[in-house]
Each structure stands twice: as structure tokens, then as C-alpha cells.
Nucleic acid binder design. Structure first.
Length: 280
DNA sequence: AGTTGGACCTGACTGC
DNA sequence: TGCAGTCAGGTCCAAC
């Protein structure tokens, strides 16, 4: 599923492909993609006719910065299975296409989403951190604001399991199931441990592991594991799955110590993967 | 306030 | 072969 490394890969690739073009039209192929707006027309009105002056990212969400009489931002919430593809305008519509931005210069930016958990939202501002969507978001993992000291205050009074707190976007922006499991493994900490009960050295290792794992994810252009549909904007899978130690490896031997990887169910019908010997 | 659980959604997989 | 049931999770919302 698209998390920070996947969204960052998309951001970086879009930058070279669509900045400078304008949105001629927004075609909505599934109305649900605009459900955050009063109507699909409300969304298209905010987007159509505007030049794309930049591409950004906040947490797991790629952003398009739009110019016009009033600056705007288009947010792609990719959900579980959302993908962006840049294709020639005559490319046939692929199954699962929920929207298409028709760009000047003969390209389409297509939004595909098998499970329809994703959506698009446009805000009449470029200061996304002031929108209700992002105002309570935690720091970006690669910002100076994200430190081991920050984790101390963010984890205090949090009795919930580390594996869950790491995915809380108000604590750190951009981490989901895959990278949460892998970060906990690299830090040598069980995801079932209460976040508020980490020691100082543990928070230090967690801080380091967060940056290392997310950097590797970006270097790999994201992860496209077994049941995942993630592809980059050219349709190419990422390779981070080849470097996973625990995610979706239940029962398989740990790559470090050989112990069978465990899976612990967590609320919401999900699971945390961890090694009983390498993680304390 | 923090935490939990249901709803949304659909392809892949399992079992009869 | 085929159909019903289960699973996976990001995010929002209601309820402890």
C-alpha cells in the first residue's frame, strides 16, 4: 500500500513529467473519488484550467500545487490501492481508473484505485498544513522537527502498542503497516510493546531505524509485495519487498536468527509481524 | 483524551 | 467448476 516511500517516489517522478503543464479537464470516472466534496463538479471547478506549478507530498499523500486567480492544492489520498500513472492521452482506460487529469501537451495523469478507498481533495490554498486534513499531522520523518527527543514527548501517555502508534499520522506522517513492522524490526523492539514504555536507548534506535528504513524504501522506489498493486507512475513495481525482514513473512525463518516470524492480530483486522528473538 | 470497533471496498484465496 | 465466506488494511466516525 502506498506509504511515504511510495508517495515520495510518485512525487519525484511527477515533478519531471507534469510541472509546467496545465489541467485542461478533470474527468471523473467514479463519483466516489470526489466524496470529500459536495459534488464532483465542486472538485472539477477547483482544478480545471489551472497550471501545475509544483508537486509536493505530505505523509502518504502526493500533492499538486496549482496556480490561477487563487492558488490551490490537489491532494491525492491513495488509500490502500491508489495509483497514479502518466500516460499518452490516447492510452485506453485501464480497469480501476477512477479519474483522469487531461493535461496540456498530450498527457493524462490517471488515478487508478482497485478498492476505492482513495479519493481526491482540492483546497483553495497552497498552505496544506492549515487545512483540516493536515493541521494535526505529525512531523515529516526527514524534517529537523523529527528527533528522538520529539518521540519522547509524542510517546508519553501513550499506552497503545508501538506498532499502532507509529501508524498514527498525528505522531509521525507517512508510516503505514509495512514500514511500521520493518522499522520495529530494525530497531529491535517488539511492536506489541506500549509506546509509552520505551526506554531512551530504544527511542534513539527507533528514530534511527525510521530514517534508515524509509530511506531504503525510497531508494527501492517503494514496495510491491505479494498482494500489493503498487506501481510507480510508469507502471514499474518497487523492490523494497526484497529487503523486508518481517512483513508478510509469518512462519518463515527470520533472516537474522532463523526463528519463525510471528503475527499478532491488532484491532481493525490487521496484524503486526515480528521476530520473537531479535525484538525485545 | 485515548482507544476500540465497524464501515467502506474488491481481488485473491480457502473450503465444501 | 463454482459459489459462499474470509482476509487485508487506510481513514473516518461512533462509542466506550
Amino acid at each position: 500500500m502506498p506509504e511515504l516511500p511510495e508517495a515520495e517516489t510518485i512525487r519525484c517522478q511527477l515533478e519531471g513529467e507534469i510541472v509546467g503543464a496545465a489541467v485542461r479537464r478533470l474527468q471523473i470516472h467514479d463519483r466516489r473519488v470526489a466524496r470529500a466534496h459536495k459534488s464532483p463538479e465542486d472538485l472539477t471547478a477547483l482544478v480545471q484550467g489551472r497550471p501545475i506549478v509544483g508537486v509536493g507530498r505530505r505523509g502518504k499523500a502526493p500533492l499538486l500545487f496549482l496556480d490561477g486567480e487563487r492558488p490551490a492544492t490537489l491532494v491525492f489520498r491513495l488509500g490502500m490501492t491508489g495509483l497514479l500513472r502518466v500516460v499518452p492521452s490516447d492510452e485506453p482506460l485501464a480497469k480501476g481508473t477512477v479519474a483522469a487529469l487531461v493535461l496540456t501537451g498530450g498527457k493524462h495523469l490517471r488515478f487508478l484505485d482497485q478498492r476505492r478507498f482513495g479519493s481526491m481533495v482540492a483546497y483553495p490554498t497552497r498552505e496544506v498544513d492549515r487545512t483540516p486534513e493536515f493541521e494535526h499531522y505529525g512531523p515529516e520523518p526527514f524534517s529537523g522537527e523529527f528527533t528522538a527527543e520529539y518521540l519522547k514527548s509524542a510517546f508519553s501517555r501513550r499506552s497503545a502498542k508501538l506498532g499502532i502508534v507509529l501508524m498514527d499520522q498525528r505522531v509521525i506522517a507517512g508510516i503505514g503497516k509495512i514500514y511500521s513492522d520493518e522499522i520495529c524490526f530494525r530497531a529491535g523492539i517488539r511492536p506489541g510493546r506500549s509506546a509509552g514504555r520505551l526506554t531512551g536507548p530504544m527511542r534513539e534506535r527507533l528514530w534511527q531505524a525510521t530514517r534508515e528504513v524509509l530511506s531504503e524504501g525510497i531508494d527501492c522506489r517503494g514496495s510491491s509485495a505479494r498482494d500489493e498493486t503498487y506501481r510507480d507512475i510508469y507502471g514499474i513495481p518497487g523492490t523494497f519487498q526484497e529487503r523486508m525482514f518481517v512483513y508478510q513473512r509469518t512462519g518463515e525463518p527470520c533472516r537474522v536468527c532463523g526463528a519463525p516470524i510471528r503475527r499478532t492480530p491488532i484491532p481493525g483486522g490487521r496484524g503486526m509481524h515480528w521476530c520473537p528473538k531479535c525484538q525485545k
